[in-house]
């Protein structure tokens, strides 16, 4: 399966979405990325039992924090994709890219000088 997905999606590997902390999501947005989504395992399929369920809650929390800040919470999403489901991975990458493109660039990108190299 030589599936392609949008090149703007940068994959950060973690052992489990349960490893992802809210702060990682926020720091990514601070650094200027336009959106962050987690590709976790299907519900009930977590190797570490509840890692993906924890991630769901943390993404919900991150969305609340973004709402407080006034940044679109849609920039952050949680997806459940089976490890074997390549086509779904590509589809989600496309879907998320389109969604973020519709939202426009991250509003802090040009303003946050601290992260301009």
């Amino acid at each position: 399966m030589r599936l392609s997905y949008p090149t703007n999606v940068k994959v950060v590997k973690v052992p489990c979405t349960g490893r992802v902390d809210v702060l990682m999501v926020l720091k990514a947005l601070e650094s200027g990325v336009d959106g962050v989504y987690l590709a976790g395992c299907e519900i009930g399929d977590c190797h570490f039992l509840k890692g993906n369920l924890r991630a769901v809650k943390r993404i919900a929390y991150a969305k609340e924090l973004l709402k407080e800040v006034g940044i679109e919470p849609e920039r952050v999403e949680m997806y459940h994709i089976a490890t074997s489901d390549g086509p779904r991975f590509a589809q989600v990458a496309k879907e998320m890219t389109e969604k973020i493109r519709a939202l426009g660039p991250n509003p802090v990108k040009d303003k946050n000088k601290a992260f301009k190299a």
């Binding site: 519900i43 509840k50 924890r54 929390y61």
Partner: peptide, 11 residues
Amino acid sequence: VREDLRIPKDS
């Protein structure tokens, strides 16, 4: 309550 910190219930 910090919902994000609570241990998820068994699904």
